[in-house]
Amino acid sequence: MANFFTTALFPVMNQYFGMPVTFLIHGVICLVYFFFVKTSVPETKGKSLEEIEKLLQKG
């Protein structure tokens, strides 16, 4: 969904704000996504499906 909005809004934002501001806005959005995933998505590397299921049922 984020990819769709990025693709759809890029030409419009580029026309109104210019290339540097458009990339700055998209960079800030990427940072927000990064910190959301870092803080909200549990680590599942090396865990079995049963362990992951229990982890997701807790939260």
Rank of each mutant, 00 (worst) to 15 (best):
M1L: 11
M1A: 10
A2S: 07
N3P: 00
N3G: 00
F4E: 10
F4P: 03
F5I: 12
F5R: 10
T7G: 13
T7W: 04
T7Q: 11
A8T: 08
A8M: 13
A8L: 14
A8K: 12
L9T: 13
L9G: 09
L9F: 12
L9Q: 12
L9E: 03
L9M: 15
L9N: 11
L9D: 04
F10V: 11
F10D: 12
F10H: 12
P11E: 02
P11L: 11
P11S: 05
V12M: 13
V12K: 13
V12E: 09
V12I: 15
V12S: 10
M13Q: 09
M13Y: 02
M13D: 00
N14W: 01
Q15W: 10
Q15S: 11
F17Q: 07
F17E: 05
F17N: 06
F17T: 06
F17D: 05
G18W: 00
G18S: 09
G18F: 05
G18V: 07
G18N: 08
M19G: 01
M19L: 13
M19K: 14
M19Y: 07
M19N: 08
P20D: 07
V21I: 15
V21H: 04
V21S: 03
T22G: 06
T22C: 01
T22A: 01
T22V: 04
F23G: 06
F23Q: 11
L24E: 08
L24K: 05
I25L: 14
H26Y: 11
G27I: 06
I29M: 12
I29H: 07
C30N: 13
V32C: 00
Y33I: 14
Y33Q: 12
F34E: 04
F34Y: 15
F35G: 03
F35K: 12
F35D: 01
F35A: 03
F35L: 15
F36R: 13
F36D: 11
V37Q: 07
V37C: 04
K38S: 08
T39H: 08
S40D: 02
P42Y: 01
P42W: 00
P42S: 06
E43I: 05
E43T: 10
E43K: 15
E43Y: 04
T44N: 06
K45N: 13
K45M: 06
G46D: 07
K47M: 15
K47T: 01
K47L: 15
S48P: 01
S48F: 02
S48K: 08
S48E: 04
L49G: 09
L49T: 02
E50H: 07
E50L: 12
E50S: 13
E51C: 04
E51Q: 15
E51A: 13
I52Q: 03
I52P: 01
I52V: 15
E53Y: 02
K54N: 11
L55K: 02
L55Q: 11
L55S: 05
L56P: 00
L56W: 00
L56C: 02
Q57F: 05
Q57I: 03
Q57M: 10
Q57V: 02
Q57E: 15
K58P: 02
G59N: 14
G59V: 13
G59D: 12
